[in-house]
Simulated scan of single mutants.
Amino acid sequence: KEKWRSYSETSSVNDNGGASLADRESSLDLIKLDISRTFPSLFIFQKGGPYHDLLHSVLGAYTCYRPDIGYVQGMSFIAAVLILNLEEAEAFITFANLLNKPCQMAFFRVDHELMLKYFSAFEIFFEENLPRLFSHFQTNNLTPDLYLIDWIFTLYSKSLPLDVACRVWDVFCRDGEESLFRTGLGILRLFEDVLLQMDFIHIAQFLTRLPEDLQSHTLFNAMANTHMISRNRRWAQVSSGLLE
């Protein structure tokens, strides 16, 4: 809180080689705006709600801790899920460590080169698992960045029902980044027949906000039928080959 207060009292560049005052203020303004959009149906993170100040503190602390990254839209959903499960200090520590993982760091730093490599790896498994849908997406010029960025940014907590997203998080904590891309393929498999009937606009809208009645067991069945092996290479081998 002291460091945050000092942001409004100095216009100097941060000692950590991070952001200028304008950048920091922009992050703080964006946090305020984004908190009100975080799980609005729960009414617990909005102003006056029991977790509003807590979410604000965790996100504000992160901008102090990593001024080189600041606040990026979508972070509020990740922090909110952690706050629902952990005490304040533990939520912040977990949040900071989670965002420090290679895949999350690539996306939150908006490292275009790295992101494109992750998209390329995803498309290899997309084509292997769902060739008809892959071809349909290509015909409609629907590229992974149009839906994967939002999914990866929020670890599916914005697009999936909260209880289903929490199940996805459990698997992510156990299996790492591969599970995030398996989940994406599971979603596409689950709704393949519906998506094949849609055009570009309707596909993009559908994948941004998935059906609220989506059940975890149906998604996990679709994920179980998704094979993360391409030409005898697993996800880690394919992705690391592209990321070199």
Rank of each mutant, 00 (worst) to 15 (best):
I69A: 01
E90A: 15
G49Q: 05
G60P: 02
L133E: 02
E113I: 07
L30Q: 07
M198V: 05
Y71F: 15
E113W: 01
S20W: 05
R132V: 07
M105D: 14
I31R: 09
I93Y: 02
I93H: 06
G70A: 09
L155K: 04
L180I: 06
W151N: 05
H52Y: 13
S8D: 00
L195Y: 05
R37V: 11
S27N: 08
L243Y: 00
R234M: 07
L28C: 03
E90W: 05
F77H: 15
A96D: 15
E192S: 14
R234L: 12
E87R: 14
G18K: 00
I149M: 07
L28Q: 04
A106K: 06
F92W: 06
F95T: 12
N140E: 03
S230F: 13
W169R: 12
A224E: 15
S76Q: 15
R234Y: 02
K32W: 04
R167D: 11
L162H: 02
K101G: 11
I229Q: 06
I69C: 11
R37F: 15
G18W: 04
A121N: 05
K117Q: 10
Y51S: 11
D163N: 12
D68S: 06
G18T: 03
T139K: 09
L148Y: 14
I78T: 14
V238M: 10
I152W: 03
F153M: 09
G70T: 01
N97S: 15
G70L: 08
F172H: 15
R37H: 10
N14W: 00
D111K: 12
I35V: 11
N232P: 03
S239P: 11
R109Q: 08
D111E: 14
D213E: 11
Y7Q: 06
S135P: 01
S12K: 07
D170C: 03
E244Q: 04
H202T: 13
V58C: 02
I31H: 01
R37T: 09
P40H: 06
P102N: 06
T183P: 03
T143F: 12
R189F: 10
F181G: 08
L30S: 07
V72Q: 04
K101D: 11
P40D: 06
T226W: 10
V171M: 13
S135L: 06
A61K: 12
I44Q: 12
W151Q: 08
I35C: 06
S159D: 03
S135H: 02
G60T: 13
H217Q: 09
E9R: 08
L42S: 14
T183W: 05
M223D: 01
L130G: 04
T208V: 01
F122W: 09
Q197K: 13
E9W: 03
S159T: 10
G176M: 01
D193S: 07
S179R: 10
S157W: 03
T218C: 08
K101H: 13
E128K: 14
L196W: 04
L86I: 09
A121P: 08
D150W: 00
A80C: 05
D175K: 09
K117G: 05
K32S: 07
